[in-house]
Each structure stands twice: as C-alpha cells, then as structure tokens.
Amino acid sequence: MTDVSTPPNRGSAATVPVGTVLSLRDIRKSFGSLNVLDGLNLAVYPGEVFGFLGRNGAGKSTAIRLIMGITRSDSGQINVFGQPLQDDVVGIRQRIGYVAQDQNMYPWMTPRVLARFVRGFYPRWDEQRYWSLVNDFELPAKRRIGTFSGGMKAKLALTVALATRPELLILDEPTAGMDPVARREFLDLVREQTQRDGATTFFSTHLIDEIEAVAERIAIVESGQTVYDGALDPLRNSVNRWSIPMSLYVPGALPGNFALDSLRVLSEGERQGRWHMTLQFSETTLATTEIVLNDGWRHDVMSLEDVFIALVSNA
C-alpha cells in the first residue's frame, strides 16, 4: 500500500486557529494504558454547525467531556470563547448549552421542577424561551420525566440547553436510541432552532446522514486523532474510488498519472473480479491537477458514508 507522510486536510498542531469559538490543539488523554485521544486537533468557528464524526469508541465522548471541563486532558490546549478552558470552567459552562448522549435528568422531576432547578446555574436563563420550546415540542409540563420516552427526554434536554441562550451548543450523539422518525424530527428541530438562534453548534455523531442533514463543516476522529477537518464537499471530492477488471490490472499501477506524494491510498483490493483502489487527494492537487484515467480504469461513485468508512478504516 502506498501512503503519504502528511495527509491532506488533516488537523495539525502547527495550525493555530484564529477567531475560533472552540479549539483543541494536540489533545492527549489516556486512561491507564489506553490512549483515548492521541493528539486531537480541531477548530470550530462562530455561527457554524460543526459535525464531529467518528466511530463508536473513537474518542468523541471523551473529547466532549474535556471540552465541558468534566475531565482534564493529559496534555494539549483547549480554548473556548478565546480563553483557556481551565481558567474559568464554570463561567465557560454557563455559556455552553449541552445535550448529553444519555439523558440522566432526575426522573422524579417534571419539566416545571427541572426549570426551577436548572435556572439557578445559568445567569442567562430565558424562562420564556424555555416554556415556548416546551410548548413547541409538545412536552407535558406536569408529567414526571421518568415517564418520558427517549425522544421526549432528548427534546427536553435540547429545550434546557437552548433556554440557557448558549453561545455554543454541544450535542453529544443526542439521537442515540431514537427511532428513525423521532431522529428525523429531532434533527429538524436542531436545524430550525440553531438557525433561529445563530448559536455555534458542535454536533457529535457516528451517523453520516445526521452530519449531512445539519453540518456545514466536520471533523472526523479516529483512534483519538483527527483524520479530516474541513467542509463536506471538499471531503467528498477528495476521496475517489476507481476499479479495473483483474484481467487488465498490473500490480502497482495507479488509475491515473498521479504523483505519489500528492495522494494517499486509503484502500485497495480485489472484489467481484475487479481491482478497487480508493485514493485521497490534497485540496491543492485537486485544484491544480486534472485527473486523466489510464486505460481500463472506471470511476465508482462514493457516498459520504463510503468516504467516511474509507477514511476511518485507513486511519
């Protein structure tokens, strides 16, 4: 397999993002001998919906726990709203709306009691917005949260997060465990509300379609490292798959006349009588080089999911 030393569009510690709402630089975190984050880098800019994509166990939730200041990184720098997180964890959290993966709200509380409890923590708490969202989401104000379905709990968590009038909204796989209808409904609400508030949104998920539905820019994390950080379209364009019948395949041959240092071979192998090759090009290469295929090679269409799988499998 061929590889390049510096993959294209990979987040780099050397890049210091300016004007970010959130930036993580070379974050490392391990639990005992298990390295969960191994030099994670990413940057989130004001007003954008940022998708944080990764497989289960890739380190997404650990990264979010670090961003929330629940745990501390072993090394690296986290800046939120332009200041180091550790300088004022509580103050920063007051400006973040957070929807967790598991909704661990007190089951004995009702939405009414929950509001009474939570508003003491957020100086910017917007009671009117909370109740308007409760009504919009058709949540029963006097029913115990313990009796709510998973979707209702997620909606309530989003309601609480939005009622804090956050400057940064962090959603950690909020649709986990929801049925497709509830998931779609929830994503529509997220899109609608974030557009309305204009808050920067950090959306973590392992589902590609969710990212496609809401995100403008994404980071893909695998094995604790950023394997892609950028917009969706360039990602789609940068990764391509070609195939050639086995009878025509010459070992070591490439689909086109590419310079080896301008690409990364994400995968190659035989399937159904054809040799398949998936390549990732840097943005510069794509902008400056015209792809001319060698004889016998065919371009295969890739979905974003294919791109994602190719990237994380190779990471």
């Binding site: 509580v90 103050g91 959290r93 957070y98 598991d102 661990n104 709200m105 923590f121």
Partner: peptide, 12 residues
C-alpha cells in the same frame, strides 16, 4: 442512577 452525570455537566 447516573443523575450525577447530569449535575457534573452543569456550570458548578
């Protein structure tokens, strides 16, 4: 019950 995780994410 895990409600501790709800509290630990609050600004406190």
């Amino acid at each position: 019950s895990g409600t501790r995780q709800f509290v630990e994410a609050l600004p406190v």
